[in-house]
Design a protein around this nucleic acid. Structure first.
Lengths: 155, 155
DNA sequence: CCAGATAATGAAGCAAGGTAACTATGAAGT
DNA sequence: ACTTCATAGTTACCTTGCTTCATTATCTGG
């Protein structure tokens, strides 16, 4: 009841639809858990790259350090993350995932891979290789276009 | 500097990357114009389906009527939209696109189609048909999965 | 050893988007 | 006619994510 698939559906329409569906599903899956998108990104980076200082987190997430403070505050209050003193720099803290949360993230990673397989399974076998190549090519092309646009906007 | 494309990049990773790139580009393109995603969706629906009441807009956009009020407030203040009295219901107002904004939306539609063509152009010619079929199949499968999940969550 | 950079936080604020409770109007049944 | 109920919008308030500016504590290089 939300997609007007009547006429002229472009490739881009479909890709946007996919993006929107992902967002909707994320929002539903984490509703009421206290996991917001920004907080999930923090957890994701910690899972992927291990403990790090808030400065490093800010750089990875491309947000201000002040912001990371707030996000880590929330995650620490809910027990998903711990602040431990940095071994060699008493100004800094190391943010690390709580073991329980690390397990949650691993499970999410697994579900992520399963979903990927399920989606590929929806594609006709003869088309799969082409789809994987094609989506990669589209992502790369789009990355270049967006980067160029951003550089142009700075000037 | 934000995508870790090192190992094990799944199809889903690529699709998520594409979604994120779109969002980034949208955010950049409309920064400073007062067009936010929610407001753009309002304009899009008005362009596509013509003038309607705020209730109808709320239903189309799947947001609360209150929210539509705020969005229309902002769009009216910037002159992109007009509120006119409903001819037969004095409670309701009809929201209509300003002509100038309708032209802007048409231009966006054209750019949208151009971008779609550009992205398809990045795909090897021999893969194009398969990619179009495949992305359609993925979008459909994902739509079913998300809807099922939402129904399951209600129960 | 001190001048300046750096890590984190406190205080305040902004824009976007959301819900809940309220007012005004319409519609339907007796 | 009039009571009841549904509907259209809006006023008030909350949360999230993010920002800037100022402050404290610590590190580092001349």
């Amino acid at each position: 009841m939300k997609y007007h698939l009547d006429m002229d559906v472009t490739l881009l329409d479909r890709l946007l639809q996919i993006g929107e569906l992902f967002q909707r599903d994320m929002a539903r899956a984490f509703a009421g858990t206290g996991f917001t998108p920004a907080r999930l990104r923090v957890l994701w980076v910690l899972q992927h790259d291990g403990s790090m200082t808030q400065q490093a987190l800010a750089a990875q997430l491309d947000v201000t350090p002040r912001n990371v403070s707030g996000l880590v505050d929330a995650l620490e209050a809910s027990g998903h993350v711990r602040r431990t003193p940095h071994p060699s720099d008493r100004r800094a803290v190391l943010v690390e995932l709580a073991p329980r949360t690390a397990r949650i993230m691993s499970r999410m990673q697994r579900e992520h891979e399963e979903l990927s397989a399920t989606l590929l399974d929806a594609v006709a076998p003869a088309d799969r290789a082409a789809v994987e190549r094609g989506i990669g090519a589209i992502a790369d092309r789009l990355a270049v276009l967006v980067e160029d646009a951003e550089e142009g906007a700075e000037a």
